[in-house]
Design a binder for these strands. Structure first.
Length: 154
DNA sequence: GCCAACGTTGGC
DNA sequence: GCCAACGTTGGC
């Protein structure tokens, strides 16, 4: 039962995993999210076929670098069960997993990155964009009109 | 390296 | 359930 396509923004640190890594891999499980709001978006609201901006953070030029599609339905993040993983969560069980993720699929690089500074310069037309306010959120929804206005900057 | 924002934890 | 302390994110 697919609803209308939704739009998202997902952050990664390019030193760890960036747009070039994603292109190489084709698709990738979006593991390691340990924030309840971000998890809820992936677990409860994302649908295969939704589109997402790939945002690079903690780097010299923070901004949006590419487009991805949500490749499949949510499922438990395997890293939560892996004692050797930095994302291991001792409180999580296979019967009652705490963390869920989706696979994302590479769609394309933007023709040029749309940097945070440029987004901020357009803040009046992007009112309510969570990127500006929810600093600690690594997965967030993007309103359709914001999505279009951002892509129009490309 | 600094620090603002803010989610999470834990004492009560 | 409140709220202060703490820890993390992430831009600059």
């Amino acid at each position: 039962m697919a609803g209308p396509r939704k739009y998202w923004l997902m952050k990664s640190e390019p030193d760890a995993f960036g747009i070039d890594d994603l292109r190489q891999r084709g698709s990738e499980p979006w593991s390691g999210v340990r924030n309840y709001q971000a998890r809820n978006f992936m677990r409860d609201q994302m649908q295969p076929g939704d589109l997402a901006f790939l945002y690079h953070s903690s780097c010299p030029q923070p901004g949006i670098y590419g487009l991805m599609t949500i490749a499949g339905p949510p499922y438990p993040d395997p890293t939560q069960f892996d004692r050797k993983s930095p994302y291991y969560d001792a409180a999580s069980t296979r019967e009652q997993p705490r963390w869920h993720l989706v696979d994302v699929k590479y769609q394309r690089h933007l023709k040029r990155p749309i940097l945070l500074a440029e987004l901020r310069a357009n803040e009046s037309r992007l009112k309510g964009l969570k990127l500006f306010s929810a600093v600690r959120l690594s997965v967030m929804p993007v309103a359709p009109e914001h999505w279009e206005r951002i892509l129009a900057l490309e």
